[in-house]
């Protein structure tokens, strides 16, 4: 746990990890996980998103839900950078097992305020081993 250096004395910043293991649309979990991320961003905690197993399907580009009559929420991932949610870890093995590469995912970027507002990719592809280490660094792990 990291102590906050902000103005609120005694307030703490915790590391929150959102673990996404489910594909969108077939069940509501991907959408309702995203809704938590959007609300949680206002709490100024350290936020990381992990996409593994079928969760990698949440980020595919070209989602078009018109014919199934369900709202397409995939554009919302691209807006998360504006809420300072910029750490998207996608598991390489999960992509590979599903015949996907980084090119199959939407481009998600943020503007780095510490580096002259340069546009940088939010998505980082990491190995299963690296993701396990990232999970072990967290204070709170949310999974839906």
């Amino acid at each position: 746990m990291v102590m906050d250096e902000g103005p609120l004395e005694g307030s703490v910043t915790k590391r929150f990890l959102y673990v996404n293991r489910r594909a969108p649309y077939g069940t509501i979990y991907a959408l309702e996980s995203l809704e938590v991320v959007l609300i949680g961003a206002a709490f100024e905690q350290e936020v990381t998103l992990a996409f593994l197993d079928d969760g990698v399907f949440q980020l595919t580009k070209g989602q078009d839900t018109g014919a199934i009559g369900v709202k397409n929420f995939s554009p919302a991932y691209r807006a998360l950078g504006d809420y300072d949610v910029t750490n998207f870890y996608v598991e390489a093995e999960s992509l590979g097992e599903r015949g996907l590469t980084l090119d199959d995912l939407q481009q998600i970027t943020y503007e780095d305020e510490d580096d002259d507002w340069k546009e940088k990719p939010s998505i980082r592809v990491v190995s299963r081993r690296e993701l396990a280490a990232i999970m072990a660094e967290q204070d709170v792990i949310l999974s839906f």
Binding site: F16, V36, I39, F43, L142
Partner: peptide
Amino acid sequence: LGQMIEAGIVADRLVIFG
């Protein structure tokens, strides 16, 4: 939903039953 985030911040441990 902020009430869930607050629980994550304030509680020593958060457990999810899903």
